[in-house]
Design a protein around this nucleic acid. Structure first.
Length: 796
DNA sequence: AGCACGCCGACT
DNA sequence: GTCGGCGTGCTC
C-alpha cells in the first residue's frame, strides 16, 4: 500500500530550492495535515528545522531512492493559505521573477513566518561555568558576534551541543477571565465578618449578577480585591478562571459616528450603475479631485455586501490616514479590517484573522491588502491607481494592480481603478476598450471652484536672500497670514536632498560604499547615506583642503523650514515629512493641529498632497516643481504632472477661493503647463506621442535587469554576456538597451548596471529570463546578483 | 541559508 | 604530518 507524502515549499529563497520537497507524513499527523498549512521540516545535512508550506500531496514513488524525512510539526489547525492563494502564487511565479517561498510569505502577516534559532547546551562543567552562568541553555541569537564565533568553535570541538529550533512567532494574546459558576453558592456562602475584602467581593458579584453580568476580567478583580480574595472564590467553585483570546485592535470603532449614503449626482449614479451591472472588464473611474469618487466606491462596496459578498479597497500607504479610514468605518462599522504599515505585527495578525474568520467583509489597506484572504469577493477598488507604491520594490516585485486583475477574474468581481490622473498604461487600456472608461467631470460640492494656478519662472525671480523662495511667493505668504488664512507649501523632494560642500575646493562628502553624496540631517547632526545607512558626523574642516568654509546646501524640508522661519520670523510653521511622521499617530497630530489653526504654514513633502482638506487654506505653494523632471526616468513628466495636478486640487475646496503658485526653472515644460491648465486629456495625448516615438510603455512592455558585483569590470563583462544571451533568445523586434550604469552606480559596495528590454510580443521571454537566472548558479557567477524587474516603476 | 566535503598553505 | 582557511555543491 502506498502512503501519501507531502510536498513542501521550504523557506530557503534560492534557485535550487525553489521547488517542492517531499516529506513523509507521520501517522499521528495524517488526519490533521492539509494543503496550505505551515509545517516545520528537517532540512539539509544538519536537519535544521525550517518552516515550509504544504502545497500538495503525492503517492510515494516506487523509485525507492533515498529515505524521505518526516514532517516534524504542523503549525496550524486550519490552512493559512487557501486554494485561491496557492493558485495565485503559481500564476505570479510566471510574471514576478521571484521564488515561490517569497511569494507565499508575502501573502501572510509577518507574524506567521517562523524565526529560527539555535539552542546551545553543554556537558562540560568548566564551559558551563564560564559562559552559561546559571543558564541551562543559551540562545544563539542572543549572543554577540564574537561569542557566536567562539561557540561555533566549541561546537566543532564537540564541547557544545547545538539544537536547531524554528519557532512560530505567533503569540496569541490572551486575557484571563472569571466567570460565575455557582450562583446559589455565591448567595449562601458564609463569610466571616472580619474578612472585609471577601465580603466586598461577594457583594460586588451579587449586584453585578443582578444586572446580568456573569464574567469579569481577572486583572480588574485582582486590582480591586487582591489576588488571594479572588483565588478564594475560585477554590470555592463560585468563579471559574479561563483564558480567552483577545484582539488587540479593540474599540476603535466605538468613537466613530455611523454615516449614511449620500445622494449621487447623475455622473456618479451612471458610474455606479455601470460598475454594479457588469463584471466583464475592469473599470477606469477617471474623476477630478473632489468629484466624489470615494462615495462611488463606498456604494459599490455596499452593493457587494448587500449581495452577501466582500470587498477590497486599496489606497496608497501615504493616504491611508485616519481621515480616510474613518469614512469606511463610519459606513461599514465592524465589518471593516484595516491593514497598513503603522500596525505592529501583532495588530496586523489580528486584522488578518478577522478577515480569515469572515468577520471582516471590507478590507481597506495598502498594497499587500490585495492578498486579503476574503471569500466571495464582489468588488476590488484601487484608488489613486497611478501611484507607484502599488508596485513592490523588493522581492517579490509584484504590482497590486495585476494581482487585483487576477483576483477579480477569479471571483468574477467588479474591479475599479480610480484616479484623477490615471497612469498612461491604464488610460491607454481604457482607450483600447480593455477597461471601460467612466468619467466624473463635476466637482461634487457646488461652490468649490477649480483654483487659479500661477507659474512662476524662477530664472526671473531669483531671490538674493533665499535660494528656495521667490519674493513673489514670500509676499503672497505674508499677505495670507496677515488675513489670518493658512498656507500649504510643498517641497518636491524626489531626487533632491541637502548636502554639504566646501566653499573653497568644492568637496562634497560621499558615502564610502555608495556613489552618492551624503544627506545632511540637522536633527541628528549627522551625514547619512540614504542607500546603505552609513552615518558620520559633520566635519568642521574640509577633509580635502582643510578649509573651514563648509556650507550647507540643498532644500531638505528641515533646511527650508529654517530658511522660512528666518525670512518670516512671525509665521508659525509645521513641518510634515518622513522624519516628523515616523512616530505612530504623528501624522494625524500634525494635521489636526494645523486644522485647528495652531500654525500658519504647513510645510511638507508629497504626503501633504494627499487628501487633506482645510477650509482655511487659500494658498498652496510648490517650492520646486521640477526637481523630478530631470531624473533619468521616462516617467518623470508623468510623475510631475500627476503631483502638480494633485497639489493644485488641494486649494479652493471650500468657500474661499484658492490660489496655487508653482515655482519652477522649466516654466514652459508641458507637464507643468498642462498641470496648470488642469488638462489631463491634453497631457495624455502629448505624452502618448512621446512614448510612441521612443517605444516606451504603454506601447512597449519593459523588463529591467540589474546586474551587480563588487568588481566593476566583472559587472560590465557579465552584463554584455547577459545582453548577448537575451538577444540570442529574443526576436528581432525586441530591443535590449544598455548595459548602462545605474543612476547611482554603486551602493553597498556593489556596482550596478542595468539592461532594459522593450518588447511587444515575446513568447520566449520568460524562458530567456529564466536562463539569465540560471546564470547565477554557475560557480563562476556566485557573487553576481541579478534582479529581474517586470514592468519597473522606478529607475533610480 | 547553512553545512559538509575537499583541496591548499602555515604551523606544532 | 594536521589544523583550519575558504571555494563548491547539496538540501526531500
Amino acid at each position: 500500500m502506498s502512503q501519501k507524502i507531502a510536498q513542501v515549499i521550504v523557506d530557503v529563497p534560492t534557485m535550487q530550492t525553489d521547488k517542492p520537497f517531499s516529506y513523509r507524513i507521520p501517522e499521528e499527523l495524517a488526519d490533521l495535515i492539509q494543503i496550505g498549512m505551515r509545517v516545520h521540516v528537517p532540512f539539509g545535512r544538519g536537519n535544521r528545522l525550517m518552516q515550509g508550506f504544504i502545497v500538495g500531496f503525492a503517492d510515494e514513488k516506487e523509485s525507492g531512492g533515498q529515505e524521505l524525512k518526516s514532517i516534524a510539526e504542523v503549525l496550524d489547525f486550519d490552512p493559512v493559505l487557501n486554494r485561491e492563494q496557492l493558485t495565485l502564487a503559481d500564476a505570479m511565479r510566471e510574471t514576478v521573477f521571484s521564488y515561490k517561498i517569497s511569494i507565499l510569505k508575502a501573502m501572510l502577516p509577518n507574524l506567521l513566518n517562523s524565526s529560527y534559532d539555535k539552542i546551545l547546551t553543554t556537558e562540560d562543567k568548566a564551559i558551563a561555568k564560564q559562559y552559561f552562568g546559571a543558564e541551562q541553555a543559551l540562545h544563539f541569537s542572543s549572543l554577540d558576534e564574537s561569542k557566536q564565533a567562539l561557540m561555533m568553535k566549541l561546537h566543532r570541538d564537540g564541547k557544545i551541543a547545538v539544537q536547531y529550533v524554528a519557532q512560530s512567532k505567533e503569540s496569541i494574546k490572551t486575557k484571563k477571565r472569571l466567570a460565575l459558576a455557582d450562583e446559589n453558592k455565591l448567595k449562601t456562602l458564609a463569610i466571616a465578618v472580619r474578612a472585609k475584602k471577601r465580603l466586598a467581593l461577594q457583594d460586588f458579584l451579587q449586584t453585578q449578577n443582578q444586572i446580568g453580568e456573569r464574567a469579569w476580567d481577572y486583572t480588574d478583580l485582582v486590582k480591586l480585591y487582591s489576588r488571594d480574595v479572588v483565588k478564594f472564590f475560585v477554590s470555592e467553585g463560585i468563579l471559574t478562571l479561563s483564558e480567552v483570546e483577545v484582539s488587540r485592535a479593540q474599540g476603535y470603532f466605538d468613537t466613530i459616528a455611523p454615516d449614511e449614503h449620500k445622494v449621487l449626482n447623475s455622473e456618479q449614479e451612471a458610474a455606479y450603475q455601470a460598475i454594479i451591472s457588469s463584471q466583464e472588464k475592469p473599470f477606469l473611474l477617471e474623476g477630478v479631485t473632489g468629484s466624489g469618487k470615494t462615495e462611488v466606491y463606498l456604494q459599490v462596496i455596499a452593493h457587494a455586501i448587500s449581495q452577501g459578498k466582500t470587498a477590497i479597497m486599496l489606497v496608497p500607504e501615504i493616504s491611508l490616514t485616519p481621515l480616510m479610514t474613518n469614512r469606511f468605518i463610519a459606513r461599514f462599522g465592524e465589518h471593516v479590517a484595516i491593514m497598513h504599515s503603522g500596525l505592529s505585527d501583532g495588530e496586523k495578525y489580528d486584522e488578518w484573522r478577522k478577515i480569515k474568520s469572515g468577520k471582516a467583509k471590507v478590507v481597506v489597506g495598502a498594497r499587500s491588502a490585495i492578498f486579503a484572504p476574503l471569500h466571495n469577493i464582489g468588488a476590488i477598488i484601487i484608488d489613486e491607481e497611478h501611484e507607484t507604491s502599488y508596485k513592490q520594490d523588493s522581492n517579490p516585485r509584484y504590482h497590486a494592480r495585476d494581482v487585483a486583475i487576477w483576483r477579480a477574474k477569479f471571483h468574477r468581481a467588479a474591479l475599479v481603478l480610480g484616479s484623477a490622473t490615471p497612469s498612461l498604461e491604464t488610460r491607454a487600456r481604457a482607450q483600447q476598450n480593455v477597461y471601460q472608461l467612466l468619467h466624473l467631470t463635476q466637482r461634487a460640492s457646488a461652490q468649490a471652484e477649480i483654483p487659479e494656478v500661477e507659474i512662476l519662472d524662477m530664472r526671473k525671480h531669483l531671490n538674493d536672500k533665499s535660494a528656495s523662495f521667490s519674493e513673489v511667493l514670500l509676499d503672497k505668504i505674508s499677505e495670507k497670514i496677515a488675513k489670518g488664512e493658512q498656507v500649504v507649501l510643498m517641497l518636491n523632494r524626489r531626487g533632491y536632498s541637502s548636502f554639504i560642500m566646501c566653499r573653497d575646493c568644492g568637496f562634497v562628502p560621499e558615502c564610502p560604499n555608495c556613489d552618492i553624496s551624503l544627506t545632511l540631517h540637522m536633527d541628528t547632526k549627522t551625514l547619512n547615506c540614504h542607500y546603505c545607512g552609513h552615518t558620520t558626523g559633520i566635519p568642521h574642516t574640509c577633509p580635502n583642503c582643510q578649509s573651514k568654509k563648509i556650507r550647507y546646501y540643498g532644500s531638505g524640508t528641515q533646511k527650508v523650514e529654517e530658511e522660512l522661519s528666518e525670512l518670516l520670523p512671525e509665521a508659525r510653521i509645521l513641518r510634515m515629512d518622513v522624519d516628523t511622521t515616523k512616530k505612530k499617530g504623528a501624522h494625524e497630530r500634525i494635521l489636526s493641529s494645523f486644522g485647528a489653526g495652531e500654525a500658519d504654514i504647513l510645510l511638507g513633502t508629497q504626503m501633504i498632497a494627499k487628501g487633506l482638506d482645510f477650509p482655511n487654506v487659500t494658498l498652496v505653494g510648490v517650492i520646486n516643481a521640477d526637481t523630478a523632471l530631470n531624473l533619468p526616468d521616462f516617467r518623470s513628466s508623468e510623475r510631475t504632472f500627476q503631483l502638480l495636478t494633485q497639489v493644485a486640487g488641494r486649494a479652493g475646496r471650500a468657500d474661499k477661493k484658492g490660489e496655487v503658485l508653482i515655482q519652477t526653472f522649466n516654466p514652459d515644460h508641458y507637464a507643468i503647463r498642462l498641470a496648470q491648465a488642469h488638462d489631463y486629456e491634453g497631457f495624455y495625448q502629448l505624452e502618448m506621442d512621446f512614448r510612441r516615438k521612443l517605444n516606451y510603455p504603454p506601447y512597449f512592455y519593459t523588463v529591467q535587469l540589474v546586474i551587480s558585483h563588487q568588481d566593476e569590470e566583472e559587472v560590465v563583462k557579465k552584463s554584455y554576456e547577459i545582453m548577448a544571451l537575451l538577444k540570442g533568445n529574443l526576436s528581432e523586434k525586441a530591443r535590449v538597451l544598455g548595459p548602462i550604469p545605474k543612476p547611482i552606480a554603486r551602493t553597498h559596495n556593489l556596482y550596478h548596471y542595468q539592461l532594459l528590454i522593450k518588447y511587444r510580443f515575446e513568447k520566449n521571454l520568460e524562458q530567456a529570463l529564466n536562463q539569465v537566472l540560471d546564470l547565477t548558479q554557475v560557480p563562476d557567477n556566485k557573487k553576481l546578483r541579478i534582479i529581474i524587474d517586470n514592468e519597473p516603476q522606478n529607475f533610480m
